[in-house]
């Protein structure tokens, strides 16, 4: 009852930055409320991540190791989480909001008969639970919410908190867990993944987002060039992921991902609220659109009114020059 537990998401052996953001917040809350911050790694090989985590301040690092966790599958993950939570008895179980954590949050809450809060942009402890804020109505409105009981399970939007490094003498404790394939109620047959050397969109410092205005191969080439000059992640609006021009995992917005980079550049994107819901927290917003009345200009810090095919080449040229100096 005195532990704040952060679940650590690992992708390709690497800890997701958004998990470290959540852990940093839990460290801060633990200190403020006189509690203990702990981390939980569930993976086929949790040891390397556990080692890395010692730089990020949890007093205990719990690990569950099993080959079944090579890929995301909800049945074993749910069982492992439920096992861990029953053993650790935390006040809060906090996750970074990812497609993996969204997959199990509701089921975990039902399994534990616990309160669940999804996609929080802020959270703190109360005497008997958690309070915080979350965006609703396609992020037009922020609602203040509270949850009562123990534990409270919650997910946190990426970019809501800063990562703070903190060297600690964390102890590593492994939790016993057995799982037989017979228990699998779902079977993963195949993973269709887009090229793997891509920059993780939700962690990118710079994001270039392509919209319907990027209508052909030439346009996509300009987007790639711009992204490579700025070492940026490429995202897209629904208009382009739907049409197959960009991989569906690159969709930014209400249905897709939430990004909060230092710099977002929207190219040929109108700025529909469902898209804006996924990028409005970017630090600097640049929009390139030929329609001076496009809604994206209402939120852009720098709005370039013009044809993207004419604006991008000199823009890329100039950025290259700046980079070289």
């Amino acid at each position: 009852m005195s532990t704040l537990l952060t679940y650590i998401s690992i992708n390709d052996g690497k800890i997701k930055r958004s998990s470290l953001e959540v852990l940093s917040r839990c460290n801060e809350l633990a200190e403020k409320h006189g509690l203990k911050s702990a981390a939980l790694i569930i993976d086929q090989d949790p040891a390397p991540a556990a080692e890395t985590l010692k730089t990020y301040g949890p007093s205990v690092i719990y690990t569950i190791k099993n080959p079944i966790f090579k890929n995301h599958l909800n049945t074993p993950l749910l069982k492992a989480l439920s096992t861990a939570v029953k053993q650790i008895d935390p006040r809060v179980v906090a996750f970074a909001s990812t497609e993996g954590s969204k997959d199990i949050l509701g089921a975990l809450a039902a399994n534990l008969s616990a309160a669940a809060l999804a996609d929080m942009s802020e959270f703190d402890l109360t005497d008997d639970g958690v309070k915080g804020k979350r965006p609703i109505m396609a992020s037009k409105i922020i609602s203040a919410v509270e949850a009562k009981g123990t534990p409270v399970v919650l997910t946190v939007r990426s970019g809501s908190y800063d990562v703070v490094e903190k060297q600690t003498d964390s102890s590593v404790e492994s939790i016993d867990f057995a799982f037989s394939e017979d228990e699998l109620k779902v079977t993963l047959k195949e993973i269709i993944s887009a090229s793997s050397d891509r920059i993780d969109l939700s962690e990118a410092e710079v994001v270039i987002a392509a919209g319907r205005g990027v209508k052909d191969e030439e346009g996509r080439k300009l987007i790639s060039e711009l992204a490579s000059v700025l070492n940026a992640g490429i995202g897209a609006s629904r208009a382009l992921t739907e049409g197959g021009a960009y991989d569906p995992s690159l969709q930014i917005g209400q249905t897709g991902k939430v990004v909060s980079p230092q710099l977002y550049i929207g190219v040929g994107i109108s700025g529909a609220i469902q898209h804006v819901a996924g990028m409005a927290n970017s630090k600097v917003i640049v929009a390139i659109n030929k329609d001076p009345d496009a809604p994206i200009f209402d939120i852009a810090d720098y709005g370039l009114v013009g044809d993207l095919y004419k604006v991008l080449p000199p823009f890329i040229e100039e950025l290259k020059k700046i980079k070289q100096n």
Binding site: H72, G100, V186, L188, S193, S249
Partner: peptide, 14 residues
């Protein structure tokens, strides 16, 4: 066909 974080997962569901 489930949209995961980085790719699509094909899942057989009883």
């Amino acid at each position: 066909k489930r949209q995961g974080d980085t790719g699509q997962e094909m899942i057989e569901l009883a």
